[in-house]
Structure formats: structure tokens, C-alpha cells
Design a protein around this nucleic acid. Structure first.
Length: 194
DNA sequence: TTCAGGATGTACT
DNA sequence: GTACATCCTGAAC
């Protein structure tokens, strides 16, 4: 019911990227619940997208997860020190996913602050509060998402998505971040935010 | 508030 | 050897 099931991800990737806005990502770690409302996503579609790691059907040990069944977590290391979390979409064998770029903190914000900055919520500067979960690396750091979760199911206990029944609100669309190298794909309006 | 520069490891040429 | 779906710090404005 409110927990998103595999069928949710087994659809057109752009549709999934939009529908994820306003849903909640929930992470269970050591009995604690960390969660946030999804406010920014990007779509990556291997068949036609130079910015996708699996562009043109490319298969390597890293990209293998992109071909996994819908509702699988694709987590990779970027710039040697940060992780990015993606939700695999469309049927098994089709390389496509939605990158999670931003959350609004919900449950467990205190612990997330410790994960991100090594100190509690009340100790944060205004700048740190404003830039709390507004980037893919930040989200993963706060929710303790690492490559240990690569290939995990998004309908399990450690990591899943929740539909609280809230209306998403107005959805904005634009170019994706950090893909200027991707030629024609650099301009695809595949970034969505609230 | 904006900007340049550096950190850091893996994937792939 | 080069590039990378990033973030932080510190300095200048």
C-alpha cells in the first residue's frame, strides 16, 4: 500500500522520476529510522543517453546493476569520496534509473546531522542547515548509503520508498547537473524538482 | 553571496 | 593517464 512496490519502478523512467517527487525515502540503520521527502530527481536512460553509465548497451561490472530488475538500488562511488543513489527503473535487462538529488529531512534529522557534520542539529550553522540534503553526495552521507547497498532491493527493510499520500505540488523541469560532457544529452530536460 | 581549488579512488582509454 | 551524475573550505566581494 503506502510502501512503493516493484511495479512502481517498472514504468517509463521519466514518469517514475516525476512520480517520486513528494514520496519519502526511508533508511533503517541500527534500529533508527532516517527519512526524507524527495524534492529533486534526474532520469538516466541508457539506450539514448550519453550521460548514462550504460549508454548504448555498455556492460561492465559497475553498470551491471543498471540492468537489474526495477526497484533495485544502484549505488556508485564518485570523485573518489562520495556516493550517488539511484533507483533502477523499467524491465530487467533495460539500463535505466532515477538519480536521487535532494531530500527534505523528516525522521532522524539529528542522526543525519551527525553523519554529515559530526555534530548535532542544534550545532549547525545557518549555511549548513540550508544546504543539508540538497545534493546526491550529501543525501548518501546523511543516510549512510554506500556501495554495500548496491544491488539491494528497494522494497526491503534497510531501504525503501513510502507514499504518504501527499500532493507533490508544482513540478519544475530543467537540464541535469554535471553532464555538460554528454553532447546532445546534456540538454535533455530530465531533471525534476519541487 | 559567489568563486577557485583541492580532495580522493575507481573505471575505463 | 584522464575523467568523473560532488562537496568543502577559505578568500573576495
Amino acid at each position: 500500500m503506502p510502501k512503493l512496490i516493484r511495479d512502481f519502478f517498472d514504468r517509463d523512467t521519466l514518469t517514475v522520476a516525476r512520480d517520486l517527487l513528494g514520496k519519502y525515502l526511508v533508511r533503517r540503520v541500527d534500529g533508527d529510522l532516517l527519512s526524507g521527502r524527495i524534492v529533486e530527481t534526474e532520469a538516466y536512460i541508457g539506450a539514448i543517453d550519453r550521460a548514462c553509465h550504460a549508454y548504448g548497451g555498455r556492460r561492465t561490472p559497475r553498470t551491471e546493476t543498471l540492468y537489474a530488475p526495477p526497484g533495485t538500488a544502484y549505488v556508485y562511488l564518485i570523485y573518489g569520496m562520495y556516493h550517488c543513489l539511484n533507483f533502477v527503473t523499467e524491465g530487467e535487462g533495460v539500463a535505466a534509473a532515477v538519480l536521487l538529488r535532494g531530500l527534505e529531512p523528516a525522521e532522524g534529522a539529528e542522526r543525519m546531522a551527525w553523519n554529515r557534520f559530526g555534530r548535532g542539529l542544534s550545532e549547525l550553522t545557518p549555511y549548513q542547515r540550508k544546504h543539508f540534503l540538497n545534493g546526491p553526495g550529501k543525501v548518501c552521507r546523511a543516510l549512510d548509503v554506500t556501495r554495500a547497498l548496491n544491488g539491494a532491493s528497494l522494497t526491503g527493510d534497510a531501504l525503501f520508498l513510502w507514499d504518504a499520500g501527499e500532493a507533490a505540488g508544482e513540478i519544475h523541469t530543467g537540464r541535469r547537473i554535471g553532464v555538460d560532457y554528454a553532447r546532445e544529452a546534456a540538454g535533455f530536460p530530465w531533471r525534476f524538482w519541487l
